[in-house]
């Protein structure tokens, strides 16, 4: 107590600040940093979850580089990102841009777009999985068959399966992105548009010169947010391909699913941890790169 009384006001403030910060600091250390550090440690070890951990050096990483499945999975993960992020952003911007101008049933329409975001990914994935089945149970193929068009192999194809799984994932995320875009659009001062109208500028120029540049912070946020989402895609893929997770022939398997299988089917925790470290580095790299490219100068 004496010790505390002797402190200056400034020092007392610091003591209090740390007293209040202690809870989140402890929380983050125990729940976030300790497991993260442990995962990095395990990536240099061999562990089957039941037995002892033994040192493996860089074996797990060497195995990773030499594993053709890993590289296939790596390509898939980036395919989800490179297709998913731009497509979802363009669609959500178009919807938000027009929805912003619509007065008729505005709230109802916005609710409709937001609904998929609130739906459980598992339920949605299963419903889409059945949509995609061949005749006689698949909705899409039954429709095609009834008008005499040959069936399309959606999920049972090495080329179509990835886009087929991506589609509901994009759809599920749209609602969130639309809401954020609309908030961004609302935040642009009306006076800019009025000035542009007085100058007689075309709609395209208004879009290119006023709307998009002023939306930049919103776009940066959404790009980073949705990129991380697509790089970590798991539930849609896993639920639409449960019998043959990530199949056929690994053509839809993302990195997170490979990690899951390595850890909880093969119980090769060291190898799974090495994959996790790679995923972490990829996420870090992609996020930093995007922030750098897109940030305001």
């Amino acid at each position: 107590m004496q010790l505390y009384r002797n402190l200056t006001i400034r020092q007392k403030q610091i003591v209090w600040a740390w007293a209040f910060l202690a809870l989140p600091v402890v929380f983050y250390t125990v729940i976030r940093f300790y497991p993260t550090a442990n995962a990095v440690l395990i990536s240099f070890q061999d562990w089957n979850l039941l037995g002892d951990r033994t040192w493996a050096g860089l074996d797990n990483y060497a195995k990773l580089v030499a594993d053709p499945v890993f590289w296939q999975v790596f390509r898939n993960t980036f395919a989800y990102l490179i297709l998913g992020t731009p497509i979802s952003l363009v669609i959500s911007f178009i919807v938000a841009y027009h929805l912003d101008k619509t007065r008729f049933m505005h709230g109802f329409l916005r609710m409709l777009y937001f609904l998929p975001f609130m739906t459980s990914a598992v339920a949605m994935a299963w419903v889409w999985r059945w949509f995609y089945q061949p005749v006689p149970i698949g909705l899409f193929n039954n429709a095609l068959a009834s008008i005499g068009i040959p069936q399309i192999n959606f999920l049972n194809s090495t080329t179509n399966a990835l886009p087929a799984i991506l589609a509901p994932a994009v759809w599920a995320g749209l609602g969130f992105q639309i809401i954020i875009f609309m908030a961004g659009l609302r935040a642009i001062p009306r006076s800019y548009y009025e000035a542009a109208r007085i100058d007689g500028v075309s709609t395209w120029t208004v879009l290119w010169e006023i709307t998009l540049p002023l939306l930049k912070p919103t776009i940066v946020f959404l790009v980073v947010f949705s990129s991380i989402g697509f790089l970590r895609i798991f539930d849609h893929v896993f639920n639409m391909t449960t019998n043959n997770p990530g199949g056929p022939l690994n053509s839809t398997k993302p990195l997170v699913l490979m990690i899951y299988q390595t850890a909880f089917n093969s119980f090769d925790m060291g190898y799974a941890a090495a994959q996790t470290v790679v995923l972490f580095l990829v996420l870090l790299g992609v996020s930093l790169l995007q922030l750098r490219i897109l940030r305001d100068r």
Binding site: N156, S157, T158, N244, G247, N265, S266
Partner: peptide, 20 residues
Amino acid sequence: ANESAQRQILVEMVERMTLQ
């Protein structure tokens, strides 16, 4: 040794023939 992985090998064996 690992039933699900050994099953997966046979799953892919058939898929290589039916899909590729």
